Simulated scan of single mutants.
Amino acid sequence: MGLASRLAVAHLECRGINPGPLLKQAGLSATALTDHNRISVMGQIDFLGLVSRAVADDWIGLTLAADFDLREMGMLYYVAASSHRLGDALQRLERYARLGNEALVMRIKKGPVCRVELSYTGVPRHLDRHQMECLALTFLRLCRQLVGQKVMPVSASFIHHRSGDLRAMKRHFGEGVEFDASADEICLDTALLDVVLVDEDPFLSDLMLKSCEEAIAGRLSNASPFRTLVENTIAPLLPHGEVGGKTVARRLGLSDRTFSRRLKAEGLTFAEILNDLRRDLAVRHLEQRTLPVSQIAWLLGFHGPSAFSHACRRWTGKSPIKYRRDSPTGLAMPV
C-alpha cells in the first residue's frame, strides 16, 4: 500500500529535499503514492535505501516507523484494534498482513513465548534492511497501542547484518536483539495474548472482518517465483556455513531429486543462484565502509578473505578494497 514510501516522501519534504528524482530512480510514481494506489514492493525497498543515503540516516526504517499515526495502516489497523484480545488481533494480522504488503508473510508460533515471524514471498529478502525494520517496529508499536502498555519483546532477530552502534535498535526492541539470524522474528511474553484490547469493538470487528475477507479474496495470489524462494532460504544460512543444495531442499520440504527437477524446469542451477546472491550481497556490504572485508567474507559464507577476494575479482574485475575505493557512493553495481 506504499505507507513506508509515503512516510519517506514526507520525511524528505520536511528536510527540503525533492523526492521526485529518488522516486523515479526507484521506479515509483508520485501520483500512485498520492492516490494511495498499490506500488511495487521492490520499488519501495529500493526507495527506502535511496532515502537513507539522501538524509544520511542508516536507521531510516526505524525513523519512519517511530511516530506516525498507526491509523494510516488503514483496514489492518482497524481489524486488529477492534479485536477482543491481543491474541485475536495477532491471528487477524497473520491472515491479513498481505493486504498492506503483498510480499509479507506473518506467522504466529505459540509456546513458552509467542514467536511472531515475518518473511517475504516473491521478493528477495537479502536486498532489504530498512523495510523489514520499519515493519517490525510498526508491529511492535501496534501491540503497545492495542494493549495500552509499554510492551518490550523477550527477544528480536533479523536476517540482515548490522554492526557498530545498535542503540537505536535497542531503544525500541530492548537488549535481546540479534542480527545475522536465521529468521526475522519478534518474541513476546505469551501472557500478553490474553490481554483485552483498549479499543475492543465487536460491531466494528464484524464489519472489518467482512471487508478484509472480501479484499483478500480479490487481491491476493499465492504464487511466488521459485528462484526467490530459494534465495530467501539461502540468505540466512550463509553466515552459518550451512549452505548446500541438500540443506536448502530439506528446508523447502523437498527431496534432493525434486529440488533439482524444479531448478532444471526453470533453467536454473543451485550454484548460479548462490553465486548471484553472494554477488548482490557483496555489493551491499561493501557499501558499508566500516564493515571489514574479513567480516563480509564470513557473512557471505566464504572460508576466508582470500576466497572472497577471488570471487569479487571474478564479479567486478577488482579486489574488494579496490572496488570499495573506486565506488565513491559504494553503490555502483558490478559489470
Rank of each mutant, 00 (worst) to 15 (best):
Y77D: 04
G43N: 02
T31F: 12
T247M: 10
M73L: 15
A4D: 06
R278Q: 13
V283E: 10
R261D: 10
P334R: 01
D165G: 06
G267T: 01
L193T: 14
G317L: 00
C212F: 13
L286F: 06
I159C: 13
A26R: 02
Y323R: 11
G111E: 11
V248Q: 03
H160E: 07
L86K: 02
A89P: 01
G111P: 06
L93Y: 02
A97D: 02
G61F: 10
P19M: 03
E242P: 00
N18E: 12
S155G: 02
E242R: 15
T316S: 06
H172D: 12
W59C: 10
M42Q: 13
V196D: 11
P305L: 03
R107F: 04
S52Y: 02
G245Q: 15
I39M: 00
S255C: 03
S319C: 05
H240S: 05
P153A: 07
T138N: 00
F47Q: 11
T138R: 09
K109C: 06
N101I: 11
F203D: 14
L7A: 04
M132E: 01
A89V: 04
K109N: 11
I273E: 03
L146H: 05
P19E: 11
E266R: 09
L252V: 01
D35K: 14
K110E: 13
L118I: 04
H240P: 04
R98S: 15
G74V: 09
P225F: 08
L48E: 05
F173L: 09
L291F: 13
A30T: 04
G301R: 00
L86H: 01
L291T: 08
D35M: 14
N101W: 12
E185V: 15
L7W: 01
P236L: 15
L104C: 08
V105P: 00
G164T: 03
L104G: 03
G317A: 05
A311Y: 01
A10F: 02
D35R: 14
M132I: 10
A332C: 07
F158L: 03
K264W: 04
R325I: 08
L62M: 10
L209F: 11
R324Y: 01
Q145C: 00
R95M: 05
V105C: 09
D206R: 14
A307K: 10
S157E: 06
L197G: 06
L220P: 02
D67K: 01
R85I: 10
L90G: 06
H126V: 04
S319A: 08
V105E: 11
E72I: 03
S319I: 02
V154G: 00
L70P: 00
F158K: 01
G87P: 09
I45Q: 09
R38E: 13
R257G: 12
R167D: 08
V113C: 01
E287K: 02
I234W: 10
P320R: 03
G244C: 08
A30V: 03
R107S: 13
V195T: 15
S306D: 13
F173Q: 02
F308Q: 01
S224G: 10
M73W: 02
A265D: 11
T31S: 10
D46V: 15
G176T: 10
A271V: 10
I296N: 05
V248C: 08
T190Y: 09
P225A: 05
G122T: 06
D58W: 09
K246Y: 07
E94W: 00
L286N: 00
Q295P: 00
D69G: 04
